[in-house]
Amino acid sequence: NQASVVANQLIPINTALTLVMMRSEVVTPVGIPAEDIPRLVSMQVNRAVPLGTTLMPDMVRGYA
């Protein structure tokens, strides 16, 4: 089972991601792999991401 990136807090739209906003968790469906967390830092979300939501590739500008 692969860990995915999950929002550690509410992340408002257009917010640049920081390490404290994300955690890794084994979830279904699988989202962005946890090993990509360092790559996600400073990328912006293109929608509001509620606490506990799995980050999907289409939620992060420039990721996919």
Score class of each variant (00 low, 15 high):
N1F: 15
N1M: 15
N1K: 04
N1P: 15
Q2I: 08
Q2S: 08
Q2F: 11
A3Q: 06
A3N: 06
A3D: 10
A3G: 13
S4F: 03
S4E: 00
S4N: 01
V5R: 00
V5Q: 01
V6N: 01
V6Q: 05
V6F: 02
A7R: 01
A7W: 02
A7S: 11
A7N: 02
N8S: 15
N8E: 13
Q9A: 13
Q9E: 11
Q9I: 10
L10C: 15
L10N: 13
L10W: 09
L10M: 10
L10P: 14
I11S: 01
I11G: 00
I11P: 01
I11T: 01
I11A: 01
I11R: 01
P12R: 11
P12Y: 08
P12C: 05
P12F: 05
I13L: 08
I13T: 12
I13Y: 15
I13E: 15
N14F: 07
N14C: 06
N14T: 04
T15R: 07
T15S: 10
A16F: 14
A16M: 11
A16E: 05
A16D: 05
A16G: 06
L17D: 01
T18I: 05
L19F: 11
L19D: 03
L19Q: 05
V20L: 15
V20F: 14
M21R: 03
M21P: 00
M21K: 03
M21T: 03
M22H: 00
R23M: 05
S24G: 15
E25P: 01
V26M: 14
V26S: 10
V26F: 08
V27M: 12
T28Y: 11
T28D: 15
P29M: 07
P29T: 05
V30G: 09
V30S: 11
V30H: 14
V30Y: 11
V30R: 03
G31Q: 03
G31F: 01
G31I: 01
G31A: 04
G31R: 02
G31E: 00
I32K: 00
I32D: 00
P33D: 06
P33M: 12
A34Y: 06
E35Q: 10
E35L: 06
D36Q: 10
D36Y: 14
I37Y: 03
P38H: 13
P38M: 11
P38C: 04
R39P: 03
R39E: 05
R39W: 09
L40P: 00
V41M: 11
V41F: 07
V41L: 14
V41D: 03
S42R: 09
S42I: 03
S42L: 14
M43T: 04
Q44F: 14
Q44D: 04
Q44E: 08
Q44W: 09
Q44G: 04
V45P: 03
N46D: 12
N46C: 09
R47S: 15
R47N: 15
R47T: 11
R47C: 04
A48F: 12
A48S: 15
A48T: 11
A48N: 09
V49N: 01
V49C: 04
P50R: 14
L51D: 13
L51A: 11
L51S: 14
G52C: 06
G52W: 06
G52Y: 06
G52H: 10
T53Q: 10
L55P: 01
L55C: 02
M56F: 09
M56N: 11
M56H: 10
P57R: 07
P57L: 05
P57C: 13
D58C: 13
D58F: 14
D58S: 12
M59T: 06
M59D: 14
M59E: 03
M59K: 02
R61V: 15
R61L: 09
G62E: 11
G62A: 08
G62P: 06
G62W: 06
G62F: 09
Y63V: 03
Y63N: 04
A64D: 05
A64T: 15
A64H: 11
A64I: 13
A64Y: 03
